[in-house]
Write a protein that binds this DNA or RNA. Structure first.
Lengths: 209, 209
DNA sequence: ACACATCGGATAGTTCCACTATCCATGATA
DNA sequence: TATCATGGATAGTGGAACTATCCGATGTGT
């Protein structure tokens, strides 16, 4: 198909598609002549994924590129696929101005991970994110050291089990990775929304709604 | 204290403080003369909260104003305080272009809430958010109807219990509301980071790391 | 074969947001 | 009295995510 059809079928304008190609979120079409390119269903799938990550999830173009990069990088064992797809996904992201110096919170994260016996990569962005938020919380005198996070971490384990269950039946690694990305990133707002609702309900129960 | 001291103590530049006052995130100081105003510890606390929400959490100025608005609106029972503080907080936020038509997903959310027996406000933004993400997931053929969310919802209930526990000892309603906001919004990235790490660990266990 | 729409590719422009800088008259301060 | 900081107003900046325009080449209908 040509770019106009890709645009029509995806609901994304032609200039925007070109922009995504320039930004290397989407591979260029196969040139059939110097000024004519051919796009296939893969492009359409990928474009929809991009729109979901940027539009639904609100990721930046840069973050989206990283996520898609992780997706392309595998072709290996299921764990590597997931490790890459899940591990590289940059979480929420605050004012992450590169090369953050290791803070004292890193020690807390290490302690937490050790206590839980988790086998996780040293350089996971999630570790840094965790340290960052803990530091942020401290500024408010919220006394929440790593032991306070333990029960949350136990719940996270159960959540992760559900997540992995949902990925079980994937036909091929690439499909699995894509599902992992979708499930991990797109489900986040839903999980947080559930938390809000549950908080409201719990509050009603405790204090009488 | 005057604005320069507020700036020094908070680490926020004077122009930025003025900007926040213009944007009504921060109340203006008490004028002691036409060109001299006085700020107190409340301003400092609030300014730090603003910085956490915008800088650490990455909320937009607009979303931050809503959160702070919820904070100001109470003065009532603990449940109302929490309902307002937690309920009004806009979750993650996608391309929320106002007045979204009720989709078929709303029915699914209703069913979910009914099944769980949750007592939650009809107009919670979290409900709309939930419907929106489910619609987003559908676009990818992720077969996840409301029954698929049930186990996640059960875990959310437990998470909410932990959250409410953490708020128990608050001295006054305003303090409680502020803590609720901090805990709800600032803890989100941490919870998501924990989920990422737990996924990585679970993947290692299942597929051999 | 010929007119005309469409294409890929490049470049420049737009909009929005979160600041940031500059000005000014006034009042505080040494 | 001579700075100096202040509140308030207005304009400007930089980055991000598009969006619009132009070009020459090419496909398409007749």
């Amino acid at each position: 198909m040509r770019i106009s059809e890709l645009s029509r079928r995806s609901g994304v304008s032609v200039p925007t598609i070109k922009y995504y190609i320039r930004e290397e979120l989407l591979p260029a079409g196969r040139l059939t002549s110097p000024n004519q390119a051919d796009y296939d269903e893969q492009h359409l799938r990928r474009l929809r994924l991009i729109r979901a990550l940027i539009g639904v999830r609100g990721l930046s173009v840069d973050a989206t590129r990283q996520v898609l990069g992780a997706l392309a990088e595998q072709q290996a064992s299921p764990h590597l696929v997931l490790g890459l797809a899940l591990g590289v996904i940059p979480p929420a992201e605050g004012e992450g101005t590169a090369a953050e110096a290791p803070t004292e919170q890193d020690g807390a994260v290490d302690a937490l991970v050790r206590e839980l016996g988790w086998q996780v990569y040293e350089g996971s962005p999630a570790r840094a994110e965790l340290a960052r938020t803990m530091a942020g919380l401290r500024e408010f005198g919220v006394a929440l050291d790593w032991t306070g996070l333990l029960p949350y971490a136990r719940l996270a384990e159960q959540t992760a089990r559900l997540d992995l269950d949902a990925l079980e039946g994937a036909p091929d690694p690439l499909e699995m990775a894509e599902r992992a990305v979708v499930l991990t990133t797109l489900l986040e707002p839903a999980l947080m929304a559930l938390r809000r609702l549950a908080q409201e309900d719990e509050s009603a129960r405790r204090h009488g709604g």
